[in-house]
Design a protein around this nucleic acid. Structure first.
Lengths: 341, 341
DNA sequence: GAACTTTGTGAAAACGTTTTCTTGCTTTTC
DNA sequence: GAAAAGCAAGAAAACGTTTTCACAAAGTTC
């Protein structure tokens, strides 16, 4: 009786506890208007039958799925994986499940994935960055699915944002290197197409330089996918120019690690000959030699705070809608004052 | 009409296409018995209304959720994040969604998460390792939820396994170091409690040493969480023993990187004074100096193959049930022949 | 002690699909 | 040219819950 294929249903529990399905439902949902003795009976029956509720039926009737979706570029980068780790952990505390999709930085694919998530009935969606297809956001708004941007601090109207100001971060990096006396600077940026974060960092960097009279046309900028080898080869290009930069800002620690690797292999001393600066402060920032000066991105916190926003009541949400987190400069050994001319 | 709160339902599509709900359902599910002209009408109506099917209703009626669950220790370790990346990508190709849970190596928590996943209606579950609470597997079997172990090659009867033989891997590491002439070896293992993989590697390592007459009681073994700092401090303990080992095998690249860091900071030359070997072949293995000799774990492939198993028909599954993947030895600079005595 | 609340419970409708069973029509077969 | 078969489409039941409404029984108020 209790081990039928598939398993017992709510009505079976009701029968065994000699009460109505309605009462069982009430007990299972913590409705306090149920007599203590009956509640015990129901719980016992459920336990004895190994009853597991059917989430689909529950979701269908109650329109609450307790499902959240996240679309991130990839899980292969620690910076995203860590955010998701924080997000999932916080959501799980409230028995909310997380469906993950990786878009590989493709906003068309992102749209398709958002559609599927909506179909699955997610109540909210976590996105990375603020640049998305208009159709994506329109869909979410039409279907009343809340969304949160991460890794950025600019929210789109009905949505929220938990992150930081990428442009400001780029400026901070530039300011730090300028203060060290560098005047010939370069940047290895992430691919800026369809990527507001990579673009923001680059823009901020160039803006700060422009502010002290360094023409952006004179600043060598190369773009690279976030891979060690790409960082390495781009650094090679940068250092083979007639006027070598004395400081290079990289859009991520991976790129910076690659850059340092290139220097290592080619007898370029870091930071004596060239300062290298990263972005993210991943674990790898402590593994390069010299260790990496970088900007710390609060990845796990973003995930947690995005979860907090999602779990908050509509009233509380107002306060949490737009959160700009601090980016911290972590100075290690890969940067030094500009060499005297 | 088309922009009502929540959105159009299947019956609205039917009305607009002047046909019955049944027909709409048939079109949407690719049932070929529908007239071409009607099909077009339905598709157009659906598009015009911005119709998105209700997954809960669909799942309830058809008992197919197209949902898969994964429970991994954490996403903060690249080795697991990469596996999930591969798993998700492959599943997404077939419009199957992935719900992720992180158990933080806690098999009791894992059980709770499995329960919730079953409630959500996942059709299969991906687990890490072969050591789980009996209740967990019993639940999955009773509810007819298929499961796949990863990072191990031993499958439990109705379940499958996609991974490698951890003990064999441990033996391979030992054999390699022995062949270099080392006789004083040590190991920094992962925490072996509730972790069959860490335990397997340790056992294999010690077994191979025992086979050449090195008593396991004489082999210093320390356990550590998979963190840089733990690797570093354990290496400190190992190297402060009266009889320093000349080769240390670490249960993961993170630990090995920490170990090398300790050596760096304390004037111990790697590999001259001590050989250090890692496990996983993560990106960081190329960042230590010297670069890390390690064993390559096919993380992404495991994810992909687990997905293949899940997506396969019951018939095909038989062939895919138990897959042992090769572990490859990657020799880099952190190991060298034992110093002459 | 009659009228009104309150409390605990059950009956039945509802959620939005898919699927089974019919039905009416067209095509094939002899 | 009538019977059989095939085909496209509709009507209605079903999936397993939650929720609304109704209703007794018990408690409260004047």
């Amino acid at each position: 009786m209790d081990s039928e294929a598939g398993g017992a249903k709510l009505i079976d529990v009701a029968k065994r506890a000699s009460c109505s399905p309605a009462t069982v439902s009430r007990v299972l949902n913590g409705n306090p208007t149920v007599n203590e003795e009956v509640r015990e009976r129901v719980l016992r029956a459920a336990r004895e039958l190994g009853y597991v509720p059917n989430g689909s039926a529950r979701a269908l009737r109650s329109t609450r799925t307790r499902l959240v979706g996240a679309i991130i570029p990839t899980l292969a980068h620690a910076i995203y994986a860590t955010m998701v780790d924080g997000l999932q952990a916080r959501l799980a505390e409230k028995d909310v499940s997380l469906i993950i999709n990786t878009s590989t930085y493709d906003i068309d694919l992102e749209y398709e994935q958002a559609r599927l998530l909506v179909e699955r009935g997610v109540e909210s969606i976590v996105l990375v960055g603020s640049l998305h297809r208009p159709e994506t956001l329109a869909l979410l708004e039409q279907k009343r699915v809340g969304y949160v941007f991460t890794y950025t601090s600019d929210a789109a109207e009905p949505g929220a944002a938990v992150g930081f100001d990428n442009e400001k971060a780029g400026r901070t990096a530039a300011r730090y290197l300028l203060d060290l006396g560098h005047t010939r600077l370069g940047m290895i940026a992430g691919i800026t197409q369809d990527n507001d974060r990579a673009k923001g960092r680059l823009d901020g960097f160039l803006k700060e330089l422009a502010a002290v009279g360094i023409d952006r046309a004179k600043v060598p900028v190369l773009e690279a996918a976030y891979r060690l080898d790409d960082g390495r080869s781009r650094m090679g290009e940068l250092m083979s120019r007639p006027q070598r930069p004395t400081a290079v800002f990289c859009g991520s620690d991976i790129l910076a690690a690659g850059a340092i690797k290139h220097c290592h292999d080619n007898g370029i001393a870091v930071p004596r000959d060239v300062s290298v600066m990263g972005f993210d402060n991943l674990e790898i920032a402590e593994l390069t030699s010299p260790e990496l000066t970088t900007l710390e991105v609060p990845a796990r916190d973003m995930g947690r705070l995005a979860a907090d926003y999602i779990l908050a009541s509509p009233l509380q949400r107002r306060h949490l809608r737009q959160r700009e987190l601090a980016i911290r400069l972590i100075v290690r050994g890969s940067t030094a004052p500009a060499p005297a001319r």
